[in-house]
Simulated scan of single mutants.
Amino acid sequence: YVHKGQRLLVEGRLQIRSYDAKDGSKRWVTEVIVNHAEFIERKEQTSQQPAPQSMESFGQQVPFDEEIPF
């Protein structure tokens, strides 16, 4: 449904976890856990210059109080 260059509005959270690889090294994975996603432009707009849109009309503002480790 989505191609590189198309814009989406995504509501959710980041999940960071670690695991031990087969070679014994520790690996870290950052995943986006999506609760809700919306297309914010049509496919036709991607071939043209997309009109800027305000994100204020989508979803609700959530205070940012988590510390992201990167």
Rank of each mutant, 00 (worst) to 15 (best):
Y1C: 09
Y1I: 08
V2S: 10
V2L: 14
H3L: 06
H3V: 03
H3Y: 09
H3S: 01
H3R: 11
H3W: 14
H3Q: 12
K4M: 00
K4R: 03
G5H: 09
G5E: 02
Q6K: 05
Q6Y: 05
R7W: 03
R7S: 03
R7Y: 05
L8C: 04
L8K: 06
L8I: 02
L9R: 05
V10C: 14
E11C: 08
E11H: 14
E11W: 05
G12F: 01
G12T: 07
G12V: 03
R13T: 02
L14Y: 11
L14I: 05
L14N: 10
L14G: 10
L14K: 08
Q15M: 05
Q15A: 00
S18D: 13
S18C: 12
D20M: 13
A21G: 14
K22C: 11
K22W: 15
K22T: 14
K22L: 14
D23N: 09
G24M: 01
S25C: 11
K26E: 15
R27Y: 04
R27C: 08
R27A: 04
R27W: 03
R27F: 07
W28P: 01
W28M: 10
V29Y: 08
V29K: 14
T30F: 02
T30M: 06
T30D: 02
T30I: 14
E31I: 09
E31N: 12
V32C: 03
V32L: 14
V32M: 11
I33S: 04
I33W: 09
I33M: 10
V34T: 14
N35P: 04
N35K: 15
H36I: 06
H36Q: 13
A37V: 09
E38N: 08
E38I: 07
F39V: 01
F39S: 06
I40L: 02
I40C: 03
I40N: 07
E41I: 00
K43A: 06
K43V: 09
K43M: 11
K43E: 15
E44N: 10
E44Y: 04
E44M: 07
Q45H: 11
T46H: 13
T46P: 02
S47E: 13
S47L: 12
Q48M: 12
Q48W: 01
Q48Y: 01
Q49E: 14
Q49Y: 14
A51L: 10
A51Y: 04
A51T: 13
P52Q: 13
Q53M: 03
Q53D: 01
S54N: 08
S54Y: 05
M55W: 00
M55C: 06
M55N: 04
M55K: 08
M55A: 12
E56S: 07
S57Q: 15
S57K: 15
F58T: 04
F58H: 12
G59D: 00
Q60N: 11
Q60D: 08
Q60F: 09
Q60W: 08
Q60G: 03
Q61P: 00
Q61E: 15
Q61G: 15
V62G: 01
V62N: 08
V62I: 15
V62L: 12
P63Y: 01
P63S: 02
P63M: 05
F64R: 12
D65A: 09
E66A: 07
E67K: 03
E67N: 03
E67Q: 05
I68L: 08
P69I: 01
P69A: 02
P69Q: 03
F70N: 00
